[in-house]
Design a protein around this nucleic acid. Sequence first.
DNA 1: ATTATGATTGATTGATCAATCAAGCCCCGG
DNA 2: CCGGGGCTTGATTGATCAATCAATCATAAT
Lengths: 233, 233
Amino acid sequence: MTPKSETRERILEEAARLFHEQGYSATGISTILRRAGVNSGSLYHFFPGKDALLIGVLERHLGLLEPFILLPAEGASSDPIERVFALLEVYRRGLLVSGCTRGCPVGNLALELGDRKPRARALMNEYFAAWTGRVQTWLGAADDRLPAQLDRESLSRLVLAVMEGGVMQARAAGSIDPFDAAVAQLRSYFRLLASYSRREPAEAFGSEEESFLEPVEAAEPAEAADASGWRYW
Amino acid sequence: MTPKSETRERILEEAARLFHEQGYSATGISTILRRAGVNSGSLYHFFPGKDALLIGVLERHLGLLEPFILLPAEGASSDPIERVFALLEVYRRGLLVSGCTRGCPVGNLALELGDRKPRARALMNEYFAAWTGRVQTWLGAADDRLPAQLDRESLSRLVLAVMEGGVMQARAAGSIDPFDAAVAQLRSYFRLLASYSRREPAEAFGSEEESFLEPVEAAEPAEAADASGWRYW
DNA sequence: ATTATGATTGATTGATCAATCAAGCCCCGG
DNA sequence: CCGGGGCTTGATTGATCAATCAATCATAAT
C-alpha cells in the first residue's frame, strides 16, 4: 500500500480538497496544478483526464474511510451502539472545524454527479456500502439491546441518512443545530428500540408485536393542483 | 402571482431542470438558451448574470414547494402522521420516474454550492425551514400519538434528513431500496413513539421517563492512526 | 403620427477550460 | 560510458465559458 508516487499523492490530495470545497465541475485543473505545485504534463502523466482524476480521488476516499473515519469511531468506545454515535461525531467535528461548510466529501460528489459518471457512482455506492456495512457489524454486536426482528441493514441506512441529511441541513443553515437535532432523534430511536427489546414481546404491544417494522402501504399523493401539464420532476 | 414574463418563466424552468440534472457549475448558459429557445440578450435582460439566475431558480423552487410538494402530501391523507409519509412518498415518486437519478433539486444545490453563494444559501435554508415547519405543524396535530416531551422541531429535522439522505443513497445505489429502508425505519420510530405516548409515563421506563430524548455527552473520537500531519477535513 | 419603453436579436468579446506534446531531466541498469 | 524509461517542463491548442452591446422589433401611451 506504499504510495505510488509522491507527486501523484499530492495531486490527489489537493484535488480531493478542492472537489470537497468547490465541487467537481467548479474546480479547474489549473487550480489543482497551482495548489499542488505541479505542471499540467505531470498530472496528465498519471491521469488520462479529469474523469480519471475523479476516480482516483474517490478511490482515495475509499482507502481513507477505514483509518480516518471508521477506526477513530471504533476507538472512541467499546460499546457497539456508542460507536455508531461516535461515527456521527466524526462528521460533526468536520462540520465544526470548517464552520459548517464541509460535510461528507463523497456525499457532495454523489449529489453533484448523479449517474452521469457511472464508474464514479459505482465507487460512491461502494463507499456507502462499506460505511453502512460497518454500522451493521456494530449493530450485530449489540444484539441484546435491539429487537431480534429488527432489520440491521435498514437501520444502518437510516444512520447514514441521518448523517448525510444532517450535514446538508447544517451547511444550509450555517449552524450545527439541525445536525444535532437529527442525531438526537436517532438516539431517541435507539433508546426506544432498547427498551422494546427488554420487554417480553407478548406484553409489549398486545397483538402487534412485530407490526412496528412492517412496511406500510404507500399512500398515493394527490396530483398537483395546477393541471397545466407541468412536470416538476 | 401572475408570471412576470413568459420568456422569463421559460428560462427559469429550463434552468431549474438543467441545474437539477447536471448541477449549477456543469450547466452552461448556452445550453439553457438553446433548450429555452431564447437568445443570450434576453436572458441577460432578466438576469444580470448566472448568479442571479440561480437566485431566480431557487425562488421558483420556494414558490413551487407549496403547490407541488406540500399540498399533494396534505391531500393524500387527513391523518397528520400519514401526511409526513405521504411527503416522503412524493420524493420517492420523483426518484422512481427518473430512474433514481433525480432527487430533491434544492438538496443537490445545497451540497454543490455550500456557502460560496450566501444569498443562495439563505434561500435554501428558507426552503428547508418551510419544509420542516410544515412537518412540525402536522406533528403538532398528532399530539395524541406523540410523547408530550418530544421536540417536534428535532423530529422534523430527522424527517428531512431521512428524505435527503435516502435520496442520496438511492441515487448512489441506482436503486430505491436504501430510500425505502430509511423510511421504513422512520416509520418504526413513529410507531414506537406512539406506543410510548400511550403508556403511563411512570410505568413506561421506570425512573428514566424523559431520558430518552436528552442529549448525550459527545464521545471524543480517537485521532487517526496515521500521525504524519494529515488533515482529513 | 410620434415617442417611449420593454423585449429581443445575435455577433462578438476576453477569459478560462481541459487537454496536448515535443523537449528535456533524472536515475538506474548494463 | 551509454541508453532508456519514468517523470517533469511549460508553452500552446481549440473549445467553451459567461457576459456585452449596438441595433431592431413590438406595443402602447400621448
